[in-house]
Simulated scan of single mutants.
Amino acid sequence: MFTFDFSAGELQPELKQVFFHWRNAAEDGNFPRLTQFELPNARPAPNILSVFEIERTQSGEPADFKALYIRNKIINTLSRKYVGTRLSEHPGFGPGSMIWSCFHEVASSSRPLLAALPYVGPLPEYRSTSELYMPLLGEGVSVDYVFVGVVLLEQEYSHKAP
């Protein structure tokens, strides 16, 4: 389903562009900040991007993930409105779901993650997704956001471990 152990060569072309942009935006070994991506005009691959804010408990544990930004290409593949809502508010996306696990892993580990998930939206021609989750800093030094690139696939996709 997901892995932290991946190489750029395993990424879909659109995700590869996003990954290199994210990695090149990092400074002094720190993750890039959300403000470095100049949304909604982010380059490259702006149509596959979304940003979620990590909501944390008082002890710092991830509690939920609020959709702040989702590009039109992704919105058109979803059956519900997500911007301004939390994952836990959508059936099948809350705690225990595959997508929740991806967000939780990135928020907990502060590492980029590659995921292969089944597509569960309204478009019958798609069967799976290839998704890249990347941590972003907020105003301070903590990871406050998850930057996500999603590519829809007509075939089943699974990460092949090297």
Rank of each mutant, 00 (worst) to 15 (best):
W100F: 11
Y126W: 14
Y126D: 02
S128K: 05
R127L: 12
L123P: 03
F65E: 01
E53H: 09
I48N: 04
N47H: 10
D64V: 04
P112K: 15
F52H: 13
I48E: 02
I74S: 03
F103A: 01
H90L: 09
S88V: 09
L137H: 02
P124C: 07
S79A: 12
V51W: 04
G138Q: 09
A67V: 13
S79G: 14
E105V: 01
V106I: 10
Y69P: 00
T77Y: 06
R80W: 09
V151F: 03
Y145H: 14
G60W: 13
R127E: 11
Y119G: 08
L136A: 04
M98F: 03
P91K: 15
Y82T: 07
V143Y: 02
L123F: 08
F103Q: 01
H90R: 10
S59E: 14
V151C: 15
N76R: 14
N47D: 14
G140V: 08
S101L: 07
E131S: 13
V150E: 01
V150N: 02
P46S: 10
A116G: 11
S128H: 01
N72W: 06
E61S: 13
P95W: 01
R80V: 12
L87Q: 07
S88W: 14
K73R: 12
Y133R: 02
R111I: 08
Y119K: 05
L68V: 09
V150G: 01
S142Q: 14
L49G: 02
Y126A: 07
S97R: 00
N76Y: 14
I74F: 06
D144V: 07
L78G: 08
I74K: 00
V148C: 12
V151W: 00
R127T: 12
E53M: 05
V151D: 04
V148D: 00
L39T: 08
H90I: 11
S59R: 15
A67P: 03
F93C: 06
W100L: 08
P135Y: 04
L49N: 00
A115Q: 02
R56E: 05
G84Q: 05
R86C: 11
P112T: 10
G92D: 06
R86S: 12
V151T: 15
Y119M: 09
E89Y: 06
P118H: 08
L39Y: 10
A63D: 10
S109R: 11
F147S: 01
E125M: 12
L132I: 07
Y119L: 07
S101K: 05
L137D: 00
P40V: 10
T57I: 06
R86Y: 15
F103R: 00
I70Y: 03
P118F: 04
S79R: 14
R56C: 06
N76P: 03
D64S: 12
V141G: 08
V146R: 00
V143N: 00
A45W: 00
I74L: 15
Y119H: 11
Y133L: 02
R80K: 13
K81E: 11
R71S: 15
A107P: 02
V143Q: 01
F103T: 00
K73P: 04
M134P: 02
I48C: 09
I74N: 03
A63L: 15
T129C: 04
